[in-house]
Amino acid sequence: MVDIKIIVCIKQVPGTTEIKINPETNTLVREGIETVINPFDTYAIEEGVRLKEKLAPLLSQTGEEIETIALTMGPPQSGEMLKEAIALGIDKAVLLSDRAFAGADTWATALTLAEAIKKFDDWKLIILGKQTLDGDTGQVGPELAQKLNIPFIGYASSILDINKNRMTIKRLMEDRYETFEIRLPAAISVGKDINIPRVPSLRGKLKAKNEAIPVWDKNYLNLDQSQIGLEGSYTQVIKISMPEHHYEVKMLEGSPDHQVDELYGKLKELNIV
């Protein structure tokens, strides 16, 4: 019997943002691009693993157990990414995969994740990366928290204290840090200042290799087509394009003194100095 579960929501994203658009179909060309765990999600994984390492000895004194679970919604090949999470120390993983999930916006994604999370008991904390590299919205976390009716702390920069029932957590806002105490269960999103993710371990990799990742589809989650994927989304992308950047580069030549004189002149023209 596991008494506390930490759920880490992760996403597979293209390893580069140098994306091309097929001019004929006006769709993104994604073939041939290596996929990786969304960089911010690696901090979420690490934080989950660290919390387990920290809490497990304390909980074992009272005979309690803690478990970390990685969750993703994505195509079948996202299972490989979940294995990477296991290699990094996550205990088990679940893949939410169904043709019907495709095209989900943040709303439909949050709904699907929420329904999956409800399948677990005793989850206390949900950790997400603060945003994805591709979509870049940062919305799934707060939307998910709202659907589960739990507090959400975004941009968490450190967990100062945590026990089974509550946590003290610091978040980074534009110009300040705020420290909150909140009751668990709760959801948080993390940035790169929270930790330095570890390198996978050999035992983790060997465990991951043999791990069978369960796949949950829409029927298992009792979701209707109208709630999920493109149909369940309230927003729809109607156009994609490449931004037009016009850069007129002027190299300032000559001796350093001359370069600086010229630069100073430009700054003066623009009323910056």
Binding site: W107, Q139, P142, E143, A145, F152, M173
Partner: peptide, 23 residues
């Protein structure tokens, strides 16, 4: 799309059940 806005407004959209476009 401030830190607060990006954390607050998705909650609002989730309650109202409407779409939200970020940033």
């Amino acid at each position: 799309a401030t830190s607060f806005g990006r954390s607050l407004v998705p909650k609002v959209a989730a309650i109202i059940k409407t779409g939200l476009t970020a940033d």
